[in-house]
Amino acid sequence: MNFSPKKKTPNMLLLIASFAIVSLILWNTNSFFKKFKEEERYKMEIWATAQSEFLSLPVEADPGNLHIKIFQNNTSTPMILVNKDSSIKINNMGGTTILDTAFIHKKIRRFKAENHPILIEYKGEHLATLYYGNSEVLNKLKFYPIALLLIIFLFGTVIYFLFKTNRTSEQNKLWAGMAKETAHQIGTPLSSLLGWNELLKTENINPEITKEIEKDINRLETITDRFSKIGSLPILVEHDIVEETKNAYNYLKARSSKLINFSFHTHVDQYPVLLNKALYNWTIENLVKNGIDAMRGKGSISIEILPSGNYVKILISDTGSGIPKKNYQTIFNPGATTKKRGWGLGLSLVKRIVEEYHNGKIKVLSSSKEGTIMQISLKAKK
């Protein structure tokens, strides 16, 4: 069960809009790349035409300023000119010289792959072949779509986590508000019950009855106190973890089915820990009740307390049907539940109480068809 409804339509529209924008940018970049490449081709064809006229001139003829300007204008496109006598001229090739023949032939193969060579002819006579590669600007432009996609991906990731954090914050505020409102609503009938119990004490009835009613009224007061603390930073006070765990255990044992076999074991007599008493007892009750539900009201519940270095571990075991390993983490998520009833908030609140309020840890220690062991780890008071 998911506590918050999924807003699929807005998310889908946002995804489609993002995809359309990215596609448009990539298409525009590709069009610009092709146009730029065509302009470079046109520039090289002009250069080849000027070279054709230059090679056809007599040796004593003046090439003219136009030819010289065309030759000098190309300062970015790397080129290799192979004359009909197999002599080679290079331009814009960095520190490469015509003596490095192996490198030049490698470049010729690369230039042929990038751009179709230009044949330089004059009146049907082949004079030379021009091989040219992409300019530095064009080579950088090829990587622009990749860089753009990377930026969009990073931006999308940031937006996703922002929305996720905002959604979690809204859920937390909603649950805190509901809890406080529940505590407020319980307060009115609780006051009335206190009055009725006092009235019953004046009647000639068995004192054990009013005593048990008083215990349950105190219990309701404890529950009200717990709910009122949700959303607020609880005050931690030093308590004996053994005593507090045993108190929660005894209360549940007295009010559970006789078909449940309870057992309590501790390896220490006392162990001081900074606790919020009401919230810690709530944690134990949630885990024990989950175990009882998993056993469908019949089986064994065991609580064990053992020290481990600077920590104390509280193990709550049941003989229920177990938890699949893939769900070890997700069972603590808000809304996660296998029950037909309930909102799946119990273990989520338990995790928050243990880890955020008490700086401890909670996890599924082990689980199988024979049962589950939940482990709480709390740091000892220094």
Rank of each mutant, 00 (worst) to 15 (best):
V242K: 07
T266V: 00
F262A: 08
E285A: 06
F262T: 07
S228D: 06
V237D: 06
V268T: 03
I217R: 04
I217W: 01
Y271C: 07
G297W: 10
S192C: 13
T266R: 02
I209V: 12
L287M: 08
K277H: 12
L220Q: 11
I260M: 05
L275E: 01
K289N: 12
G309M: 04
Y271N: 02
S308H: 02
I292Y: 08
I223M: 06
N250E: 14
I241S: 09
L252N: 12
G299C: 02
K258F: 12
T245E: 00
L200R: 08
V268L: 00
T210L: 09
N310G: 06
Y311I: 05
Y271P: 02
Y249E: 10
Y271W: 01
I213F: 15
A294I: 05
F264T: 10
I205T: 09
K201H: 15
K253A: 14
V288Y: 01
D225M: 03
N276M: 04
R219P: 12
E285Y: 06
T188G: 13
S256K: 11
I260H: 03
R255Y: 12
D216W: 15
I209T: 15
S191M: 15
H267E: 01
S300W: 04
L306M: 09
G309A: 07
N290F: 00
M295G: 06
K298V: 08
N250S: 13
K201Q: 11
N247H: 10
I241V: 10
G231V: 03
I213N: 15
N250K: 14
G231R: 04
Q185T: 15
D293T: 04
T245S: 05
I284N: 02
L279Q: 08
P207H: 13
T210Q: 13
N310T: 08
F264L: 05
I213S: 14
H239L: 09
E243A: 09
I303H: 07
S300T: 14
I186P: 13
I186K: 14
R255E: 11
E285R: 10
N290L: 05
N206Q: 04
I305G: 07
S263D: 13
E198F: 12
K229H: 02
N204M: 05
V273K: 02
I305T: 06
D240K: 05
Y280V: 03
T222C: 06
N247C: 10
S232L: 05
G291K: 10
Y249Q: 09
T210P: 14
I260R: 10
S257L: 07
I230C: 01
L193Q: 04
L236M: 00
